[in-house]
Write a protein that binds this DNA or RNA. Structure first.
Length: 184
DNA sequence: GTATCGATGATCT
DNA sequence: GATCATCGATACC
């Protein structure tokens, strides 16, 4: 398990270090291959305009989940990070490892590449919903395991943003077939 | 491989 | 009333 101190560091450093980390919910999940960082001074962040009802977990202690609904139909999972309140890392893609049958059933596809290759997809595959909002990441149903080896990290601009679209805070495993989108 | 579009509803101004 | 940290289908290259 990753200790709370892992998350209580600069959010961009944590984002980089999350590549290769194992993420499991009730034993189902895989290795993180793509993330994005958001800090409170970032116009694209939900925390930019200060605390609201929705973003409350971002201003709580690091090492907890921030789960929100986007476009009225998908869930997105973030890890609350940083030394200062209001920072988080969006988990964008996993390499499926454990519970592939379960994930395939929840996603309605047999294609490995379509199970967790996007923030909304991996939440559906791991059954992450608002029920996990604010939950600690070092207690069930969550389980996080350290990256087995040093990773070759790709860097790029974040996806789907209209604000701060040029900030290069998207990180991923070089060459992974399980990314939401290739790095350029 | 990339581009565009519609679905769909909570959140915030 | 506008805005989305998305997905899947379709079209095209």
């Amino acid at each position: 398990m990753l200790p709370p101190a892992f998350f209580a560091r600069d959010v961009v450093a944590v984002a980089r270090d999350l590549i290769g980390v194992g993420l499991f919910v009730d034993g189902v999940g895989g290795l993180i291959v793509e993330v994005e960082a958001y800090d409170p001074f970032d116009p694209a962040s939900h925390a930019f305009n200060g605390p609201t009802k929705r973003n409350a977990p971002m201003f709580g202690p690091p090492g907890h989940a921030y789960v929100y609904r986007i476009y009225g139909m998908h869930w997105c999972l973030n890890f609350v990070c940083g030394e200062q309140p209001g920072s988080a890392v969006l988990i964008r893609a996993l390499e499926p490892a454990v519970g592939i049958e379960t994930m395939a059933e929840r996603r309605g596809t047999g294609s490995l590449k379509l199970l967790c290759s996007g923030p909304g997809k991996l939440c559906q595959a791991l059954s992450v919903t608002g029920a996990q909002n604010g939950a600690a990441l070092d207690t069930p149903p969550f389980a996080l395991t350290p990256a087995p080896a040093a990773e070759d990290i790709a860097v790029g601009v974040r996806i789907g943003l209209t604000k701060a679209a040029e900030t290069p805070w998207r990180f991923g495993r070089v060459g992974s077939p399980y990314l939401s989108k290739p790095f350029r």
